[in-house]
Simulated scan of single mutants.
Amino acid sequence: MQKKDMWPAIKDLPPRKQEAVLVTYFKQGPVYFKRFLAKNKGLPSNKIQAGEGCRTCYQRKKIGQAMGIDVDSLEPAK
């Protein structure tokens, strides 16, 4: 499964929440998205929720520093 497969479920979410959902998917694997689909079958108004991927929002600056990038511009840190 790729991001394009999840796009219908995340396209209306804010970018940081999209990222958190994708990180959760990365950590949990395809079962995460399959559970969401099974649980919300026929309920298109339900939105997928991020799990442990939410930490990326809180730790964005620390992650960027460790990678040597500015997280706002995604350019190498000065």
Rank of each mutant, 00 (worst) to 15 (best):
K3H: 07
S73L: 08
K34V: 04
K78P: 15
Q49F: 07
A66N: 09
A9G: 01
A38S: 03
A66S: 13
M67W: 11
M67D: 09
D70N: 15
G29N: 04
G29K: 08
D70G: 08
R35N: 04
Q2K: 10
V71Q: 06
G68K: 01
K61H: 09
K41I: 01
A50W: 13
F33R: 01
I48L: 05
G64D: 05
A38N: 07
K3S: 12
A77T: 02
F36D: 07
T24A: 14
K78M: 07
Q59L: 15
L37R: 08
P44G: 12
Q2H: 01
A20H: 00
R55G: 07
R60N: 00
D12K: 11
D70K: 06
F33L: 09
P76A: 14
A9S: 09
S45E: 15
V71S: 10
A20C: 02
Y25E: 02
K17Y: 10
G29T: 04
K41A: 10
A50E: 05
L43K: 15
D70E: 09
A50L: 07
M67P: 03
A50C: 14
K78L: 03
P30Q: 15
D5K: 06
R60I: 00
G51N: 04
P30T: 03
F33H: 02
L37N: 05
Q28M: 13
C57N: 13
T56M: 14
K47H: 15
K41G: 01
G64P: 15
K62S: 14
E19F: 08
K62N: 12
V21K: 03
K17A: 12
G53Q: 04
D70V: 07
M1E: 05
K47W: 12
Q65K: 14
F33W: 02
M6G: 01
Q28V: 10
R60H: 08
Q65E: 11
Y25H: 02
T56Y: 15
D5E: 06
Q28K: 15
G64A: 07
C57K: 13
P8Y: 00
R16S: 06
K39C: 05
V71I: 15
I63K: 03
I10T: 05
Y32P: 00
V71A: 09
P14I: 01
K11P: 06
K47Y: 12
K27A: 05
D70T: 06
E75H: 11
Q59E: 11
A9N: 03
L74D: 14
V31M: 03
V21H: 03
A38C: 01
G42M: 06
P76K: 10
E52H: 03
V71P: 08
V71N: 08
A38K: 09
D5V: 01
Q59K: 13
M67A: 15
C57F: 06
E19Q: 14
M67L: 15
F36S: 11
K41W: 03
A20D: 00
P30I: 02
E75Y: 09
V23E: 13
L43M: 08
T24Y: 04
Q49C: 09
L74V: 08
L37K: 13
Y58M: 13
P14T: 02
A38P: 00
L74I: 09
G68F: 02
L43T: 09
V23W: 14
K17G: 05
S73F: 06
T24P: 10
